[in-house]
Computed example of a mutant assay.
Amino acid sequence: MKIHYLEVVTPDVALACETYSLLHSVQFSAADPSLGGARTATLANGGKLGIRAPLRDTELPIVRHYILVEDIQATVDAAQESGAEVAVPPMELPGHGQCAIVIQAGIELGFWQL
């Protein structure tokens, strides 16, 4: 299992980026519209940390991991068969691959396919 993308949703993106920069000596990009306006930094494993503001009024602050998978649809189907609710079906992120989100027992799980 490899975490490909770690997403932080917060109402104060600048403060979160400043904190992660100071604590972990990383630099963040400008906002990427393909990632919901997230500012990103590269993780030691080659993945990305993305920090963005909520995309809707009902989206609460959260830290969500996205596991790299070979077949995102098969992974979502398997999660659904095990009782997970599909919150975001597989969707294309131009230039980044595909992502999906399921919720199982109140925990949001993200999947990413390159």
Score class of each variant (00 low, 15 high):
1 M>Y: 12
3 I>N: 01
3 I>H: 01
3 I>E: 06
4 H>G: 13
5 Y>V: 03
5 Y>L: 11
7 E>G: 01
8 V>M: 12
8 V>K: 07
9 V>D: 07
10 T>N: 12
10 T>D: 15
11 P>A: 05
11 P>D: 14
11 P>R: 07
12 D>A: 04
12 D>N: 13
12 D>W: 03
12 D>Y: 06
13 V>N: 01
13 V>R: 02
13 V>M: 06
14 A>L: 10
14 A>I: 06
15 L>E: 15
16 A>P: 05
18 E>F: 03
19 T>I: 11
20 Y>W: 15
20 Y>A: 07
20 Y>L: 14
21 S>Y: 08
21 S>G: 12
21 S>K: 02
21 S>W: 08
21 S>A: 13
23 L>W: 06
23 L>S: 10
23 L>D: 05
24 H>M: 14
25 S>G: 08
25 S>K: 09
27 Q>S: 09
29 S>A: 10
29 S>N: 09
31 A>E: 08
32 D>A: 03
33 P>K: 01
33 P>F: 00
34 S>T: 11
34 S>V: 08
36 G>F: 05
36 G>V: 00
39 R>C: 12
44 A>S: 12
45 N>P: 10
45 N>C: 13
46 G>F: 09
46 G>E: 11
46 G>C: 11
47 G>K: 04
48 K>W: 05
49 L>T: 09
49 L>D: 05
50 G>F: 04
52 R>N: 07
54 P>C: 02
55 L>M: 10
56 R>D: 15
56 R>W: 04
58 T>N: 07
62 I>V: 15
64 R>T: 15
65 H>F: 14
66 Y>F: 07
66 Y>P: 00
67 I>N: 02
69 V>P: 01
70 E>S: 14
71 D>W: 10
71 D>V: 11
71 D>Y: 11
72 I>C: 06
73 Q>K: 03
73 Q>S: 11
74 A>W: 10
75 T>M: 12
75 T>A: 14
75 T>R: 10
76 V>D: 01
77 D>G: 01
78 A>F: 02
82 S>N: 14
84 A>P: 06
85 E>P: 00
85 E>M: 11
86 V>M: 11
86 V>E: 08
86 V>Q: 13
86 V>W: 06
87 A>K: 13
87 A>H: 03
89 P>W: 00
92 E>Y: 05
94 P>A: 09
95 G>N: 04
95 G>Q: 06
97 G>Y: 02
99 C>P: 05
100 A>C: 14
100 A>Q: 09
100 A>L: 10
101 I>K: 02
102 V>K: 01
102 V>Y: 04
105 A>E: 15
105 A>R: 14
107 I>G: 05
107 I>H: 12
107 I>D: 13
108 E>W: 09
108 E>C: 11
110 G>S: 06
111 F>R: 01
112 W>E: 11
112 W>T: 00
113 Q>R: 01
114 L>T: 14
